[in-house]
Design a protein around this nucleic acid. Structure first.
Lengths: 203, 203
DNA sequence: GACTAAAAATAACACTGTTATTATTTCGCC
DNA sequence: GGCGAAATAATAACAGTGTTATTTTTAGTC
């Protein structure tokens, strides 16, 4: 019998606690600090408890991975609609960076193989694509309203996503000089993208 | 006395062999496969040999990291000059992707914290910035010859680098659908960037 | 309160990076 | 060639990792 069937509320509470402490360990000391032993000490129990609630370490990381994408999706969904679809795309870009910079550890887990042996499960990857659809829909609207030439919207959205991810990734990894703010740098980048995507005859 | 002083040629040969086998292990089985024990078995010796030639595992990874950037720099340097500076920037973008895709393990080591506890040394990071200067010079020429508005060339080059890195990173990580080729996707992206960077009144 | 079944603890296995101690080899010199 | 000194390599160990088999404790039901 699984713990969920035996004492549902206590079990989900323990699960939640494990994930929270795992997230905290990850944020505090990076991937190295997140070990099953330290985690078990943190929740004041033995390692075996972790294994009754999760199949293995991967399963815990998988949940954090999904949570990371849920956060990102939530932050992108919170961006208000805009009459100007191009402006909305830019606003989504800013929100993407804010979300990533606010949760650098999650972002690292989501986009760089920072934990040895961790490979997100197919289910997790599916969840990850969900966040992308918001960006895609915004680009599609730009095309529908004639601001962007009718190319494959996914291709254009990928370029956008790539630029966002690339700049944030380089920033978090310390490759970009801290002279200019990351925010200003991203602003310049999305302006270039906007002008490059736009129809030639538009202002 | 260091091994280099005692038998210089044999020592450098052993060093080279260690690095080659380390690189091979990394390429074959990813970061997990590169352990000091496996590496020592591979070169047919005890772990202690590794420690007489390198301070620790980090030092080995640091050398591989630098080699990765040297490769990238070599591949970018091999791009021939072009009368059209904009075309040259695009050619550099294509070369960047080719280099990254040809050495995915190196690229991962260079840009994602794929090995636990590995943080490139300040010297290594300096080497990493060298490769960027090629991109920067090409962008600067575009500005000098009036193809791009006179903004900070570094900012523009960062946008370019970010887009290249982002798309390649997403591609290597499996976030982009394998329907379209990565090459075509990058082509589309650098066209958008070119049009976005260009002076408004230019064709 | 006793019985049953689930959950937790202990201790262990195989692995990791690293190092102290011991043994071997190699070099310069006679 | 053989000796002494010094550097290099091997063995074995330490503390750490993820994971699990075995044992003990706890909780729910009659």
């Amino acid at each position: 019998m699984s713990p969920a069937k035996a004492r549902p509320e206590a079990a989900t509470q323990t699960r939640r606690n494990i994930l929270d402490q795992a997230s905290a360990l990850l944020a505090e000391g990076g991937p190295d600090a997140l070990s099953m032993r330290k985690l078990s000490k943190r929740i004041g129990a033995s390692t075996i408890v972790l294994y009754t609630h999760f199949r293995d370490k991967q399963a815990i990381l998988d949940e954090l991975y999904i949570e990371g994408f849920e956060r990102l999706q939530r932050d992108l969904s919170a961006v208000p609609e805009d009459d100007d679809p191009m402006e909305r795309v830019m606003a989504l870009g800013r929100a993407y960076r804010r979300s990533a910079v606010a949760n650098p550890t999650y972002y690292q887990l989501m986009f760089s193989r920072c934990v040895p042996g961790f490979d997100p499960s197919p289910d997790s990857r599916r969840a990850s694509r969900q966040a992308f659809t918001i960006l895609l829909a915004a680009v599609r609207r730009c095309i529908d309203e004639g601001h962007v030439p009718p190319a494959d919207p996914a291709e254009t959205a990928h370029t956008l996503w790539g630029t966002l991810h690339g700049l944030i990734s380089l920033e978090l990894f310390g490759y970009l000089p801290p002279t200019a703010s990351g925010e200003a740098r991203l602003e310049r980048a999305i302006e270039i993208l906007r002008d490059g995507m736009r129809h030639p005859n538009e202002t």
